[in-house]
Design a protein around this nucleic acid. Sequence first.
DNA 1: ATACTATTTGCAATAATTTGCAACTTTAAT
DNA 2: ATTAAAGTTGCAAATTATTGCAAATAGTAT
Lengths: 249, 249
Amino acid sequence: MLKEERFQLILTQLGQDQKVHLTDLSHVLKVSEDTVRRDIKELADQGLLKSVRGGAVPHSPGPHRFKDRVEYGNDQKQIIANKALRFLKDGQVAIFDGGTSAMLIAQALPKDIQLTVVTNSFPIASILEEHEKVEVLFAGGRLLKNSFVTIGNETIQYFRKFRADICFSGICSIHPELGVTGPDYEESEVKRAMVESSREIIALSTLEKLGTAEAYYVCPTNQLTTIITDQPDNLDAFEIYKVMGIKMV
Amino acid sequence: MLKEERFQLILTQLGQDQKVHLTDLSHVLKVSEDTVRRDIKELADQGLLKSVRGGAVPHSPGPHRFKDRVEYGNDQKQIIANKALRFLKDGQVAIFDGGTSAMLIAQALPKDIQLTVVTNSFPIASILEEHEKVEVLFAGGRLLKNSFVTIGNETIQYFRKFRADICFSGICSIHPELGVTGPDYEESEVKRAMVESSREIIALSTLEKLGTAEAYYVCPTNQLTTIITDQPDNLDAFEIYKVMGIKMV
DNA sequence: ATACTATTTGCAATAATTTGCAACTTTAAT
DNA sequence: ATTAAAGTTGCAAATTATTGCAAATAGTAT
C-alpha cells in the first residue's frame, strides 16, 4: 500500500469520524504504529490535520472573535481549505479575500509558516493574529458592516500597490465565456483589484457555481491559475479542464 | 478516547446546557474527576470556557470580541469617556486612535448618533459595527499584533486624506515646552498624522501624565484643543489652564 | 539486469506525558 | 467554628512519543 493511499485513508476516516486513533489505523493500514505516527506527523506538517496524543483530529479551526465565523465542520469548504494549503509556500506574499472560503484557509493555516498576508477582512486578520510568523497588511477603506470587510476606492488602491505571489479568492461564478462574475458591484471591484495584483490566482468555488454568471464582472476566466472545488475525488477535473483550460484541484 | 474527544464533548455539552458539572463529566467521559478538572483547566487557559467551582460555564461573551478589551468598570477611563461624549455632535467626522481610552468612548457612544469615524483600531471598528448610524472608515497598514491597530506609512497616508472635525487621542505625555510625546516611534508617527488631520483635538490623559515627556514627539502642546483627564472634580483645571493655556475638562 | 543510493519501515531503548490515587489545603455554607 | 465538598499537590503506573539503527523497499544510473 502506497504512502499516499494511507494518507488518503487517514484523511477520509478523519472526515467521517472527526478523529482517528493510532492503534486503529495501525490495524486498518497494516503498518506499525510508528509509521502511522510518522504519517500523521507529515499530514500535520501540511496542515491537513492536527496531531494529538494517541491519534489525530481535524485541523481545528480555532475559535476567534467574529460573529460570522464559520461553524466547526463545514465539510465542503473545509475540503477546499485543505487543498488550498498545498499552494502556500514559506516566504510568500498572499492576498486573502473576505469570503468564508478564504477564512477557512486562514483557520487551517499551520502555525509555523512564514507569510505576508494582504487582506481586507477583519476575521482573517483576527485569525492570523495568532500566527507569529505571519505579517498582516490590512487594506483600509469603508467598513462593510455585517461582513467585516473593507471596500471602496481606498481598498482597491491599497491592493494595487502589491504584486503578490498568490491570491485566494472566493469566486462566485465562473463561466467559460462570460468570465468570473459576482453579485455585488463593490465587492467585485475589490476582487478585481486583488486578482490584478497577484501572479497566481486560486479561485475557491463549489462545482455548481461553474458555468454560471452574475451581474458584475471581475476578470476573464483565463486569468485564473487554478480552481479549487469541494469535490473530494475530482473525477470531472479533466472534463472541466478541457472546457475551461484551467487546472482544477 | 483521545483527550481531544473529551474536549470536544465538554464544549458541546457546555454549548447545550450552558454549564457542566465535574461529576457528570467524570461519569460520561469515564475518567476520574481529576482528569476532568485538568481538562477544564486546559480549556479555560485557551479561553474556551470559564472554570468555576464544581464545573465550568461558557466564557462570558463580552461587549466585543477582542482579547485586549478593557473591563467594563475601569473607573478612571470611564470618566474620561463620559466627558468626551459631550464633544461629539451629530454628523461629525471623528478620528479615534487605537488606545484604550478612545475605545471606551466608542463603547460609551449612544446608539443613535450619526457619525463618520476614522480609526486604525480593530477593537473600535468592532465596537462601532453595532452602531447603525456610524460609518467606519478604516485605515489600512501593517497590523500590529497584540494591540490590534495598524501602523506604518500606509496608515499615516490614510489619515492625511481627511480633514476631520474632531480627534480623540490617548496621549501619553504632555509637557508645556517639550510638547506631546509618546513611548513608541511608529505609534507616535501615526498619532501625529491623526492630529494634523483634525480641526479639534481632544487629548485623553490622566493627570499624572501632565508635565512629563517621552522619547518620541507627536505635536506641540498648543495644538491640542482640550485635555480630558480622569479627575472627577477638576480643581486644578484653572491652574493647569494658566500653565498650559489649554482648556481642561 | 546490476549495483548503488535514498527512502521507508519496524523494532528497541529511552524520554515525556497523562492519568488516577491519596494525603492535604482551601472554600462556602450553616 | 464546624463540616462537607471541591481544589491542590506529589507520586507511581500506564500510555504515548521520540530517537537511533538495521532491514526492507523503491529509485536511479550504469
